[in-house]
């Protein structure tokens, strides 16, 4: 059964189309991810699905309720963790949970039990009486996830759940997300621009760019279109080397762009000497060469033939790291 169904969902901000005719569905019980760069329209999609923004055109249903005509029903059925922190920092963790539960109509005894449950789920039992302003970034995020779960939502929306957190906290949050998906049978819709996150968590992902969905598939399928490793190199004569490399069967994909060659290969480390050798044979000098795991950018390149954003790529050589982004800034 499909728990989220959208049809030609569109949002325009004056002349900018942030979400452009998006149609997709999310199955009950799965973890579905939206993967896309900054400004792709991920948050805007979530805001429409959670009734915070009115779509310009198109429609969507959550648990069979229409997001425009049955707002209240939709709101009862969803939980959301926003991209920007949305806690009251002057209150304790427990108070944040309790106030939330009251607004969703849980009675006193239910409230009490549920607070215990969700605090336990995210390991914050000891911090329950601490003011949220004294929480660390990761603790705040966990509390928000716990709060999103308070009222037993059918669908939980997580907008960039681990943005700006350290590796260890990210792992922990991933574990909580998996756990609640399993134990509470909550369908999860998350957005991210981290490949590893999507790969670890999501059953299926949709790649979204400039408001449009490019493809929906599992991450492993998406990545296999690129190759297990990616080699990027620059040299004195790109065309000549490109021609030579085209003959090699072990290269799954070659793209030439912005003065670089990008190759999809397996066991990239072992291929570097071979490539250098091949270059020498055709008399081309290699200026730089590196091997790395495929990123969102590479998937993009393989699906669209262009990099995510030419200007963005210039400022961040690797997608997945967005230095202009900081979360939990208060």
């Amino acid at each position: 059964m499909d728990i989220i169904k959208t049809k030609n969902l569109t949002k325009k901000f004056s002349d900018l189309t942030a979400v452009d005719n998006v149609t997709f569905s999310v199955h009950k019980g799965e973890i579905f991810g939206f993967l896309g760069p900054n400004g792709a329209g991920k948050t805007t999609t979530i805001k429409m699905l959670t009734t915070l923004l009115n779509p310009t055109a198109g429609s969507a249903r959550i648990s069979e309720f229409d997001i425009i005509k049955q707002r209240d029903k939709v709101r009862q059925n969803i939980g959301i963790v926003f991209q920007e922190p949305a806690l009251d920092t002057e209150l304790t963790g427990e108070e944040n949970l309790e106030y939330h539960a009251r607004m969703y109509g849980l009675n006193r005894s239910k409230r009490k039990d549920r607070i215990e449950e969700v605090l336990k789920l995210v390991d914050l039992e000891e911090k329950r009486r601490v003011f949220v302003k004294n929480y660390s970034g990761g603790m705040k995020r966990r509390l928000e996830i716990a709060r999103g779960l308070m009222h037993y939502p059918n669908v939980l929306f997580l907008d960039e759940p681990t943005l700006g957190l350290d590796a260890q906290t990210r792992r922990a949050i991933w574990a909580y997300i998996k756990k609640m998906n399993k134990e509470e049978d909550t369908t999860i819709f998350l957005t991210t621009h981290y490949m590893d996150e999507a790969e670890y968590l999501c059953d299926r992902v949709g790649i979204i760019d400039r408001g449009k969905i490019l493809v929906i598939n599992s991450i492993s399928n998406l990545k296999s279109a690129v190759g297990k490793d990616v080699i990027t190199l620059s040299c004195t004569d790109l065309n000549k080397l490109n021609k030579k490399l085209q003959e090699q069967k072990w290269i799954s994909k070659i793209k030439q762009h912005d003065g670089f060659l990008t190759l999809g290969v397996e066991k990239g480390d072992e291929k570097i000497p071979i490539i250098i050798e091949l270059a020498q044979i055709v008399g081309v000098k290699i200026k730089s060469i590196s091997v790395r795991k495929p990123t969102l950018d590479d998937v993009f390149l393989s699906y669209t033939g262009h990099t995510i954003r030419d200007e963005e790529v210039k400022s961040n050589s690797m997608i997945g790291i967005h230095p202009q982004y900081t979360r939990g800034k208060r």
């Binding site: 959670t50 009734t51 915070l52 209240d72 709101r75 009862q76 969803i78 959301i80 926003f82 920007e84 922190p85 949305a86 806690l87 009251d88 920092t89 939330h100 607004m103 969703y104 109509g105 709060r147 208060r330």
Partner: peptide, 13 residues
């Protein structure tokens, strides 16, 4: 600014 308003606005109230 601190986003708390959104938490209130998505509640079924």
């Amino acid at each position: 600014q601190f986003g708390f308003l959104q938490e209130v606005l998505v509640a079924p109230i």
